[in-house]
């Protein structure tokens, strides 16, 4: 028994080490090709780019551990950014109220996703695929009806300061990410709720039989995914200065890749916040590296797809080998 346990621990440790080695190799590779890669400017850009993927990946982590999935977050961010911009710029609503309403839109979308999936036993990816179409269309409709453009300017001092100023040399958006990482890590690793989430993912039937309200907790997780999507929406509005109906268009693949790379399995029950953040770092380094190398955008899309497949394939092949042994 003890033997198996130590073996398992060794395996998990080596997973993290493999990811760290990959990260090191990638950074070395891009630095060799273009020494600007590790310049302060590029690193701070990279960190800012990482914030959005990181926040979304954090929201996905407990959800996917509990065997849920949400791919509508990209369109949801588009919608949230448009709602905030419309309320503030066109509607003249108080900035803070607009931001709160934006976050509430995200929370509501997440709640509806969870409610539908859990009460009708739907396949999460299919429902959120449909939701993605609806939200994207809504963002377009709203932006077109009320302002006749796809992107609406949001010019405010607070958001501009938030996006550009730093707190002890750490940009504010990065600070938000750090706080969220600590919260999620604490909940998943140290609390009873966290253990419950792992149990649900490992075996939903057992979880249900042992008196856990599986559906309620999963709806809650979808709602929290909506909450972080709302926060992501605010950050994208702050950093870009516009609310745009295509803001979230290319978020789904990198985020999913990052989460899966970090060791979360589609079968649920496994994964850690640290793994997810490593995955996010690697994915960010890859895509930032590619854009520092001036790779055209269609290649980036191609690489996003390739990365997703290679990552999942690598894990599958390893698992198959482990199962054979």
């Amino acid at each position: 028994m003890q033997d198996i346990n130590t073996k398992k621990k060794g395996l998990r440790l080596s997973d993290t080490i493999i990811l760290l080695i990959i990260l090191g190799v990638l950074v070395a590779f891009f630095t060799l090709i273009n020494s600007d890669f590790i310049a302060y400017n590029n690193i701070s850009t990279m960190l800012k780019n990482m914030v959005l993927t990181g926040i979304l990946a954090l929201g996905l982590t407990p959800l996917m551990i509990a065997r849920g999935l949400d791919i509508s977050f990209g369109s949801s961010i588009s919608l949230i950014s448009v709602v905030i911009a419309l309320l503030y710029t066109v509607g003249g609503v108080n900035l803070w109220l607009a931001l709160i309403i934006g976050v509430l839109v995200g929370v509501f979308v997440g709640f509806i996703n969870g409610l539908l999936i859990e009460s009708f036993d739907l396949i999460p990816i299919i429902l959120t695929l449909g939701m993605m179409a609806i939200l994207q269309a809504l963002a377009l409709v709203l932006a077109n009806t009320f302002s006749n453009t796809y992107s609406i300017l949001v010019m405010t001092d607070p958001l501009y300061y938030f996006a550009t100023r730093t707190f002890f040399k750490i940009p504010y958006p990065v600070l938000v990410l750090i706080v969220l990482v600590i919260v999620y890590w604490f909940i998943l690793a140290k609390t009873k709720v966290g253990r419950t989430i792992y149990l649900i993912g490992a075996n939903p039937t057992v979880a249900k039989l042992s008196g856990i309200k599986v559906k309620k907790i999963k709806i809650l997780l979808y709602t929290f995914m909506g909450l972080v999507t709302g926060i992501g929406g605010i950050i994208i509005v702050a950093v870009s200065g516009v609310g745009m109906s295509y803001h979230g268009k290319n978020l789904a693949l990198p985020t999913l890749s990052a989460v899966l790379l970090g060791g979360i399995s589609l079968m649920g029950g496994s994964g850690t916040v640290a793994g997810t953040m490593l995955g996010v770092l690697i994915v960010t380094v890859i895509f930032n590296g590619l854009s520092v190398l001036n790779v055209p955008s269609y290649y980036i899309q191609l690489f996003q797809g390739l990365a997703l497949i290679i990552i999942v394939a690598a894990y599958e092949i390893r698992n198959n080998r482990a199962a054979m042994n």
């Binding site: 990816i125 693949l253 899966l260 899309q301 797809g305 999942v312």
Partner: peptide
Amino acid sequence: GINSIITTLGTLAIFRGLAYF
């Protein structure tokens, strides 16, 4: 042995990228 949705999500991006290329 990859989940079919994840597989085709990946190939969707790959072949769209190739199509643009």
